[in-house]
C-alpha cells in the first residue's frame, strides 16, 4: 500500500487509527483498537496525530451547561466515604476506586520519603517543591524534590529496574515546548542533580518533570529518544 495510491479499501495502521478517531468502527473493533493503543506506543502516536488533525472539527460541539447534580454525583463517586459505606460491593469492584486507593497510598509514600528532605528549619514553602514521578504501564517510580535555595533536584528511586546499557535522564517540560534536559540520573537509591541556571526559574514556578529511558550516558540528540517511564508535576508541599 502507499498513501498516494489509495485504490482499494485496504486498511493500514494509519487508516485504522483514523477510523478509530473518527468513530466509525463497531463496538468490537473499537475495543480491540483501544487495547492496542494501550500496548503499542507507536500506534498510540498515530491515534494522537489523528486526534490532533481532526480536533478543529470539535468547534462544532456546543457548550451546554450540565446540571449541578452531575458534579455532585461525580464527587460522590470519587470522594465520599459514606458512599463507600452504602455501596460497598459496587465500590470494591470499581477500578477507579482501586486506582484512587493506589494513588492515595503512593501519595503517603511520597510524603514519607520527602519528609526527611524537608528538614527541621521551615524554609519558605515555595522554595521546596515535590513531584511524584510515575507513568501508566511503567514500574519506574521516583520522587523528586526541588530545593530552590540550593538549586538542587534530589531524586529518590522507589521502584523500577534499569538495564546495564541504559540510563535514566531527567527532563523539564513546560507546556508544549521541547523538553529541556536536567541531566542523566546517577544510579542509586538517592541522587542529586544541579539543573542548568536557565531552567532554575521554570523549576521554581512548578514545572512538569519527566524521566526517559536513554542510551548509556544520556540522549545523544539533546531530546528524549526513549520512552517516558515516569513523569509528574512539581508542587508545593
Amino acid at each position: 500500500m502507499t498513501a498516494s495510491d489509495p485504490t482499494g479499501p485496504e486498511r493500514d495502521d494509519d487508516v485504522l487509527a483514523a477510523e478509530y478517531v473518527l468513530g466509525v468502527l463497531s463496538a468490537g473493533e473499537r475495543q480491540a483498537v483501544a487495547q492496542r493503543v494501550e500496548q503499542d506506543p507507536a500506534f498510540a502516536r498515530l491515534v494522537d496525530a489523528w486526534e490532533g488533525r481532526l480536533s478543529p472539527l470539535a468547534a462544532g460541539y456546543a457548550e451546554v451547561e450540565a446540571p449541578p447534580s452531575v458534579k455532585a454525583a461525580i464527587d460522590r463517586r470519587l470522594f465520599t466515604s459514606s458512599a463507600a459505606q452504602q455501596d460497598r460491593t459496587g465500590l470494591w469492584s470499581s477500578l477507579a476506586f482501586w486506582r484512587g486507593l493506589a494513588a492515595a497510598a503512593f501519595a503517603a509514600l511520597v510524603l514519607a520519603v520527602a519528609v526527611p528532605y524537608l528538614g527541621a528549619p521551615p524554609s519558605p514553602p515555595q522554595m521546596e517543591l515535590v513531584a511524584s514521578l510515575t507513568a501508566e504501564g511503567s514500574d519506574v517510580r521516583y520522587v523528586a524534590v526541588y530545593d530552590g535555595v540550593r538549586n538542587e533536584v534530589r531524586l529518590s528511586h522507589l521502584a523500577g529496574q534499569l538495564a546495564s546499557d541504559k540510563d535514566f535522564e531527567l527532563w523539564l517540560i513546560e507546556g508544549k515546548d521541547a523538553p529541556v534536559s536536567i541531566g542523566v540520573v546517577p544510579a542509586g537509591s538517592t541522587a542529586q542533580l544541579t539543573p542548568p541556571v536557565l531552567v532554575r526559574e521554570k523549576l521554581a514556578q512548578g514545572a512538569v518533570l519527566a524521566i526517559s529511558l536513554e542510551p548509556k550516558g544520556g540522549s545523544p540528540t539533546g531530546q528524549p529518544t526513549g520512552p517516558v517511564v515516569a513523569a509528574g508535576d512539581l508542587n508545593d508541599i
Binding site: D48, G52, T134, A135, E136, A210, V228, A231, G232
Partner: peptide, 9 residues
C-alpha cells in the same frame, strides 16, 4: 497522568 505523555493540546 496520561495527558503528560500524549502530544495533544
Amino acid at each position: 497522568d496520561r495527558f503528560a505523555v500524549s502530544e495533544l493540546s
